[in-house]
Amino acid sequence: MRPSRKWMLWTFFLLVALVQLFPLLWLANFSIVEASGFFTDKILFWPDAPQWHNYVNAWVDGKFPRYLLNSVVVSAATIILTVVISVSMAYAFTRMQWKGRSVVYSIILLGIMIPIHATLLPNFAIFKELGLTNSYWGLILPYTAVSVPFATFILTGFMKSIPLAVEESAVVDGASIYRIVFRIILPLTMPAVVTVAVSTFLTCWNEFIMAYTFISKDALKTLPFSVMNFAGQYSSDYGSQFAVMVLTSIPAVIIYAIFNEKITKGVTAGAVKG
């Protein structure tokens, strides 16, 4: 590419990146602006008196640590369950020989297409009957169910690319099938596992409607809820509301920043090999 065109492209990309980031920058900016500052004509500005106490409101009155803990517990449990279930299924779908494996595979993939909103109503009835509403399991189970189909799809695509010779030598050494899957295959599928773990994390961390439906006890609510709670409690104090939103988003952005390259690699492998 010629330097002049490269330069034009660069400027254009920079502009678009600014448009992408602007709403978030604005959110962060106005989280330290006092209420009256919302009516100025300024677009982005450093306030004369930064309202850091908005973050204190968010942390204390927003019960941020409590919701943070809930989000961490639910996300961690879901990720572990999803990875274990999907890795074993993907192995059975790619390597093991059994009748009906392509049928079962297609059935599992149907889970990607079935809208969770359609299963919300009956699940609400079932969970209520089983006493799963207002418990961590009431979120972990549906989150896992939603994550497994996509995770299996990605992992199956990735496992196809691992040469069979890897297992052959292990079998000769007398390793059991479980040892092969979790000690030999799992480390080799790590790039895809990371993709799956991060995308599952983002789903759990940000999910709203199931939590909103299945959880009503304050002590069990997850982070997206804190935003809603706070919006009701501090309805006119936009600065504090924005502070909660910023705090909620930070962990997700950090996780993304750390695993950014791995996500791209995992998606690339999955998308290309299908």
């Binding site: 990146a17 961390w205 940000n206 997206p224 939103m245 988003s249 997700a252 993304y256 920043a257």
Partner: peptide, 18 residues
């Protein structure tokens, strides 16, 4: 690539209220 993806990691609740 990193910048363009950032809105995807933000919760739908935050996005909607924002």
């Amino acid at each position: 690539r990193t910048i363009f993806f950032i809105p995807c990691v933000i919760s739908v609740v935050v996005i909607s209220r924002m």
